[in-house]
Amino acid sequence: MIEAIRTQARNLLENKEVDVIIGYAEGSDSTRTTPVFIRKPEEVSRLIFDPRCINSLPLYLNKRHEYPQKGWKRTGIIAKGCDIRAITQLIAENQLTREEVYIIGVPCDGVVSHFSKWDGRLHDGNQATKCAECDVHTPTDCDFFPGERPEVDRSAPYKVSAPQVLNLMGLNTDKRFDYWRQEFDRCFKCYACREVCPHCSCNICITDRTQPNWVDQAAHTKGVFAWHITRAMHLVGRCTGCGECTRACPMDIQVDLFNQRLKDVVQESFGYKSGYSQDEKPPLITYKTDDSEDFIQ
């Protein structure tokens, strides 16, 4: 499989169809992989793909990284099914056009939840939670796919409630607040969750603005609460559930539980599944006159 991808990548670079291929390469030790930007045809042998390839590469397609300003007209990207959902969502949000990107889809049987969990093979103990309910093991929309691509029916509503979300929803409100207070007590606001998010698109983040100071810069629990609610609110109906925020968190806070919960809410209330359509508008920038209003007096 990887040979077919390398050949295709070499052809694309030699024919100047793309300016760069974003993919995965061997990392600093045997459990790690690293994102790599291949610009020369002879370097394509560095490309690899296996269950250690957990980074979400569409991050680099987001306008905030300003890669098109380097004169790159078209970017090739090696993408798992979940990454292609992120790319689709970026296209729906006008972060890029479909012509600007050449998607090399890869079949994926799941990835590990964290590099440190890698022990030579993928099993239930180290698989990422998002992979259990994944319906895009075979990618949806790609320009190149190694081998035959089987048709998969993806019309069913996807199951998003992670077991931890259901556990938390079973608690009463005060217990939930205590849980989050304990979790957020560890947060020291490194903003890794923001930096790895493919959908955090603001050029200047609201937490980097000090006038007016909406989210306190200090890493005390008040400001931490404000930050995580703000982040979740900004991602309503946009998060595709790649789980990168939780993986990147140095303090092991499960910050994507908010996003998981809101994906449930969005699907139930607005019937929207993020990352499956390039044309459908994200739920909060559109409306229906008969939306639910049972919470309104």
Binding site: W180, I229, G237, F258, R261, F295, I296
Partner: peptide, 28 residues
Amino acid sequence: YYARRRNLAFRQLLDFQGIDLGRLEFSW
């Protein structure tokens, strides 16, 4: 209409965070 959608999501978010929804009211 936009406010209605936004507040629907926001209520669920605050609920998940552990704030009693009795403290937040939306009315026309």
